[in-house]
Nucleic acid binder design. Structure first.
Length: 470
RNA sequence: GGCACCGUAGCCAAGUGGUAAGGCAGAGGACUGCAAAUCCUUUAUUCGUCGGUUCGAUUCCGACCGGUGCCUCCA
């Protein structure tokens, strides 16, 4: 296998990657803020991280992944207050929805899903360390801030000039009591509405709650240690979130916080960033009601490189549904066949080489998809030519299984519904009888009945097969 | 205003300093009772525009045009 290379936002270049300890990749991925079900834009990032995770495992490394659940922040408090419920009452159901959506999209479960509210002591400890290092200060408003002037490399990741606020930039309105406008909150003093919904904790600086950036630093280091192998998230987190995480963590430990920073690009709709604020979001729920399978969405997402913007359109989704139909048919055929030939074995070997090379090259999933479809074409052709080599067939099955273990593109057809299966078999028997009598009018009528139920059929010399198409 | 990214066939999308993967859609054919699936053939002399470097550029450089993101919370 070629070496594994990954784009590192820190150096803005593609670098060879190997886990620090040589065996287990410590991966931290910024997760959702659970006040509302995540939309497809969020899931594009989680899908990119799923790809990363699966490729790391394909490379033979173990992965210890953390995805945090931000369950205390301004929006959560605002919404909980409006409904006069606690933040936990608000976030619990959303966390459940997140996992249901995650499973629908076949995003592998991370090892840890820490909730911010479960790590308050660790967060307080981190602020205390920063305070001891003379980098954190408590302002008159009771909030503890991080003094960026005390951290000389601030801005290294985003390369934003923090000194000047330029015309056109959106500027924060409320500057509170900070010493420097760029300083960010580590620990926010509690307000009455925070107390009312259970979003306030005791601390050395009085009642309050953690700042957003602090959550990730504290949880990442508590679970994975002070230096991560990879920290991933969406591009919008580069500044200020990731920049601030670096500042807090490194100012506290004196060690590099993450060796690699990886950022996934946005999903756009109608040419604009998908965001609740823009009002152009769609959700996993929408996918389900429109009959878009997880496999189809995965194909759609993986058909564009993760560092490139992707525009969601009906046409593209339909193309992916059809592409994935082909993958599913091929997968069925591979299970059904009994033997192959030299051409099939060769196609299998090519697939392994091409797909692993593409995926190892900064997760080039589009190229891996190209290799997969080349393989499907070559394998179909070889299988059409028949053969007696069972070993060749096994190689093809194995190669397909390996690549699909990363991409996961076989649509679920729900043919395990035994009641449906029995009914379909009865219809097919009736149709077979009609065909035997050359009563094609009746045969076509039965086929139409099946089609109306979403059942597609294929006649072959060995009998008639059927599948659910939607 | 600052910092980046992107512009490849009808649509989506890889890619390389040496002559354009793949998917969808379309056309013709084989197979089929007809379909479906599959296979075969076909669909960009050309990679936003204009210059430059080069033996040679879609690939490097510059300008311009068009699009997007970040600079506030944000995947």
């Amino acid at each position: 296998m070629p070496e594994f290379r990954l784009y590192n936002s820190l150096s803005r270049s593609i670098e060879p990657f190997v886990p620090g300890d040589g065996t287990t990749v410590k991966l931290y991925t910024c997760g959702p803020t659970v006040y509302n079900p995540a939309h497809l834009g969020n899931f594009r990032t989680f899908l990119f991280e799923d790809l990363l995770r699966r490729v790391l495992r394909m490379r033979g490394w173990a992965v210890e992944q953390v995805m945090n659940l931000t369950d205390v922040d301004d929006k959560i408090i605002k919404r909980a207050s409006e409904r006069s419920i606690s933040i936990t009452d608000l976030t619990d159901p959303v966390v459940e929805t997140f996992h249901a959506d995650r499973e629908y999209l076949r995003i592998q479960r991370a090892e840890h899903y820490p909730r911010a509210t479960a790590f308050i002591p660790e967060m307080i400890e981190l602020v205390k360390r920063l305070e001891a290092n003379g980098i954190a200060y408590k302002a008159d408003d009771g909030t503890v801030y991080f003094a960026i002037d005390k951290f000389p490399t601030y801005g290294r990741l985003s390369r934003l000039d923090t000194r000047e606020i330029r015309a056109g930039a959106r500027v924060a309105q409320d500057e509170y009591a900070k010493e420097n406008a760029q300083d960010f909150a580590l620990w926010k003093a509690a307000k009455p509405e925070d107390e009312a919904c259970g979003a306030a904790w005791d601390s050395p600086w009085g009642r309050g709650r953690p700042g957003w950036h602090l959550e990730c630093s504290a949880m990442a280091m508590a679970i994975l240690g002070e230096t991560l192998d990879i920290h991933a998230g969406g591009v919008d987190l580069v500044f200020p979130h990731h920049e601030d995480e670096i500042a807090q963590s490194e100012a506290a430990t004196g060690k590099p916080f993450a060796r690699f920073w990886c950022h996934g690009e946005f999903l756009l709709t109608d040419g604009a960033k998908m965001a609740k604020r823009v009002g152009n979001v769609s959700t996993v729920e929408d996918l389900r009601t429109n009959g878009v399978s997880a496999a189809a969405l995965r194909h759609f997402v993986f058909s564009t490189h993760y560092r490139k913007q992707l525009n969601l359109s009906g046409g593209a989704l339909e193309a992916s549904m059809e592409a994935v139909r082909r993958v599913g048919d091929f997968s069925d055929r591979l299970s059904r066949e009994r033997a192959g030939n030299a051409g099939l074995a060769e196609a299998a070997d090519t697939l392994i080489v091409e797909a692993t090379t593409a995926l190892s090259d900064d997760l080039n999933a589009p190229r891996a998809l190209g290799a997969l479809f080349d393989f499907i074409h070559a394998a179909n052709k070889a299988l059409d030519a028949k053969g007696t080599d069972a070993g060749a067939l096994n190689r093809a099955r194995d190669a397909f299984r390996q690549v699909n273990a990363v991409l996961d593109l076989v649509p679920d057809r729900g043919t395990d519904d035994s009641e449906l299966a029995t009914w379909v078999e009865e219809q097919l028997a009736a149709r077979a009888a009609a065909r035997a009598k050359r009563d094609f009018g009746e045969a076509d009528r039965v086929r139409k009945v099946l089609e109306d139920k979403g059942i597609a059929i294929e006649d072959s010399p060995s009998g008639t097969r059927w599948k659910k198409v939607h």
